[in-house]
């Protein structure tokens, strides 16, 4: 891939006159809109999390950290726990299945290369539509799964009113929808591995597991960290299937931090609590990214 450290074309040009105003005109829309719709809102979020008042309130009253303690007292703590359980499950399953399928597709058998296309389907479908399919698969009594359970003479399961089953339903959807992305990313990473190393191990008579464990897995480390970052941030931002399948219930058992922000901000109109949770979710995302990229940087240097 291209590296950012290359000198710009401008510098390579040497003495040629540089346009003075044009560069600013070129970057103004992108930078201006990023500032207006990402950085300004972030500042507003931090500032307004310290004040009371509704979504469209005109006068704000300073309340210190009251919004934070209210958020923690009113379901915020539970939402962070749900987010943690969901995200850990999501990351492990989508990365594990994604890597396994990528390894299968990478095996040199005829037609395997054409089989990667189906895995992008769940990824690009409108998620409200696919979440509704999930609702009908997991529906009480007449849903596919309960028809099968009933047909086998087993107890039917109520996925929408049992807390652990509700979270399982939401998680299975997330995994089904997203694991294809990790298939594509791991497959791309596998294609870049130096074949001579892998083939040398073949000649040495190492079995498939040892070849993977000692040759491919270490070589995949950089890609794995990158995929880990993307997957974690995706997991933290899960929203649609929760809205469609459980609306955060039962008893908040599927209310993630993001769903909590939505619910407090736009349904309950507790803007202060929504802002406080927004700050917390932002800090968590930032912390995770920095830690993961930190590990990535170290791993990259060791590989070099």
């Amino acid at each position: 891939m291209w590296r950012g450290v290359k000198p710009t074309a401008a510098r390579r040009r040497g003495g040629v006159k540089q346009p003075l105003v044009l560069p600013y005109l070129f970057i103004a829309p992108a930078v201006g809109l990023t500032v207006l719709f990402s950085l300004v809102p972030l500042g507003m979020l931090a500032y307004r999390s310290l004040f009371g008042g509704g979504v469209f309130a005109t006068s704000l009253s300073y309340v210190g950290l009251q919004n934070y303690s209210n958020a923690f007292a009113n379901g915020g703590t539970q939402s962070l726990e749900v987010t943690a359980v969901y995200t850990v499950g999501f990351v492990i399953l989508t990365m594990g299945i994604g890597l396994a399928v990528a390894l299968l597709l990478n095996v040199n058998v005829r037609g395997a290369a054409h089989l990667r296309a189906p895995f992008i389907i769940p990824l690009v479908m409108p998620s409200v539509g696919t979440a509704l399919i999930w609702a009908s698969l997991f529906a009480p009594q007449f849903g596919f799964i309960n028809r099968i359970l009933g047909g086998l003479g087993l107890h039917q399961a109520d996925f929408t009113s049992t807390p652990s089953l509700a979270l399982l339903m939401v998680l299975t959807f997330g995994v089904w929808q997203f694991f294809g992305e990790n298939v594509i990313l791991y497959l791309a990473a596998l294609k870049t591995l130096p074949m001579d190393l892998v083939e040398a191990a073949n000649v040495d008579g190492a079995g498939p597991w040892r070849r993977f464990r000692y040759i491919r897995w270490p070589l995949l480390r950089r890609s794995t960290v990158l995929i880990w970052v993307i997957t974690t941030l995706t997991g933290l931002q899960t929203f649609t299937q929760i809205y469609i399948l459980t609306n955060g219930g039962p008893n908040g058992s599927t209310t993630t931090a993001l769903f909590y922000i939505f619910n407090q901000g736009f349904v309950q109109f507790n803007t202060g609590q929504a802002d406080a949770m927004g700050v917390i979710l932002f800090l968590i995302s930032l912390f995770i990214t920095v830690v993961q990229v930190g590990i990535f940087g170290r791993g990259a240097r060791r590989d070099a």
């Binding site: 990402s38 972030l42 901000g265 736009f266 932002f282």
Partner: peptide, 22 residues
């Protein structure tokens, strides 16, 4: 500045974005 923008997940700032749009 652009890089920092990338670090702000859009979903965390939905409340202030709606306030700006209002």
């Amino acid at each position: 500045a652009l890089l920092c923008g990338l670090m702000v997940p859009f979903s965390t700032v939905i409340v202030p974005v709606v306030q700006i749009l209002a």
